[in-house]
Design a protein around this nucleic acid. Sequence first.
RNA 1: GGAGAGGUGGCCGAGCGGUCUAAGGCGCCCGCUUGCUAAGCGGUCGUGCGGGUAAAACCGUACCGUGGGUUCAAAUCCCACCCUCUCCGCCA
Length: 424
Amino acid sequence: MDIKFIRTNPDLAKEILIRRHEKISLDEILAIDEKRRQLIQVRDQTRMEHRQLTEEIAKIMKSRQVSNEYNQANIDSIIIECKTLGQKVKDIETELAQIELDLENKTKYLPNVAHESVPDEDTVVASWGAKPDFSFKPMAHWDVGEALQILDFKAASKLAGSRFVLYKGLGAQLERALINFCLDTHVKKNGYTEINPPVLNLEDCFYNTGALPNLADEMYKCTQDPFYLIPTAEVPLVNLHRNEGFNEDDLPKYYTAYTPCFRREAGSYGKDVRGMIRIHQFDKVELVKITVQENSYDEQEKMRKDIEELMQMLNLPYQVKLLSASEMAFQSAKTYDIEVWAAGCEAWLEVSSISNCESFQARRANIRVRRKTGELEYVHILNGSGLAFPRIYVAILENYQQKDGTVIIPEVLRPYMNGQVKIG
RNA sequence: GGAGAGGUGGCCGAGCGGUCUAAGGCGCCCGCUUGCUAAGCGGUCGUGCGGGUAAAACCGUACCGUGGGUUCAAAUCCCACCCUCUCCGCCA
């Protein structure tokens, strides 16, 4: 929702905010914008006058070299007038800069417009697989993992404190197998291009994706250098083409990246403290697509299918939730969450969030496409996790656990673990 | 971290205080010419912001890595920073 849209459709814009439970005053924004536009007009007018005088001086200076018909006083008076105008322009620019900063500070908190298919309540729209039956009481993953000595929370806390995990032996191999399985599937089967990006990114990148300003407290910031640690590979993938233009034929672009992700989890003290459901550093394979606007919702469905297929290949029961307007991330127009069933915790855990951000991020990152008609427009950008591993790991340990304490390895992962069939 | 070179339109590349409204070339698109290909000739071709319009046309203004400064006037002069390349130092 940019300022032009608000200016032309103020009532519609207000409704949109109400749907998303946002309490930002658009009237204030509109008033600032009005003032801004007035100032721009005055500034440009003054600048024009200034320029004309400058040109006149240039002419005089030139002809003076040939003849001496202009006297010094004459020129001096024009120069003084010119100086005055120049100062006036500077004053206006100072005032304008303040107003534009003000406007930016207000508009950067405006969320994306929710798509018309987005409901007012979270809605489960699909589910797959059956919750496993056990002849015994299934254990939580932290018990399974520690008993098998593949997870070591104590060692992790020695190194980094709470909310970290350390994988060991076959446990570390399992994590690596998950990463490779997902990447390989996206690259070989679904046509995504693999990227291995920096995980320290500059502040602008975070603003462009929508992570800043809202999630500032969620991220780790470097004190000596202007970096943040990425909370998701969405940040580098979306910014890969920052300030670039595409031809229509270049699109769509499909990208995938494995990266560690870092989150402070501020404000969730005491929530999910045990185990690895909510940790400060975790591995994730991310998907990002860049498309022309009319294809983005089809592409979102395709992305959802790509991710669901991973779940099915891993044989993990899941449900798909269509998020309500008020639950979605700030930058998203439509989001599906995929939740895996974890038998030990007896909970649905979010393992993927598939968002169509439409042109929200493209506007901030300035990524456009030249259409065949010659027109320039913003691209649509989508992202989805495929997948976030700790919770997949949790589901595997809890759903695949056996009475004797061993854990069967999902079939698709065995080739990545030297054919190993089970752990323990 | 130290020394040097550089950053100009879609690309190459000139310009180093006042017709820069950015040369020239390549490329793109349109037209003409030529039996196809190639070549030739002419024309067109940026983005943001504001105004204007039903939409265009059009008008104003800004933009030569970024941000400041000097000047009546900055791509051009000064300062700071960023990035790229080369060399040196340090280091996985």
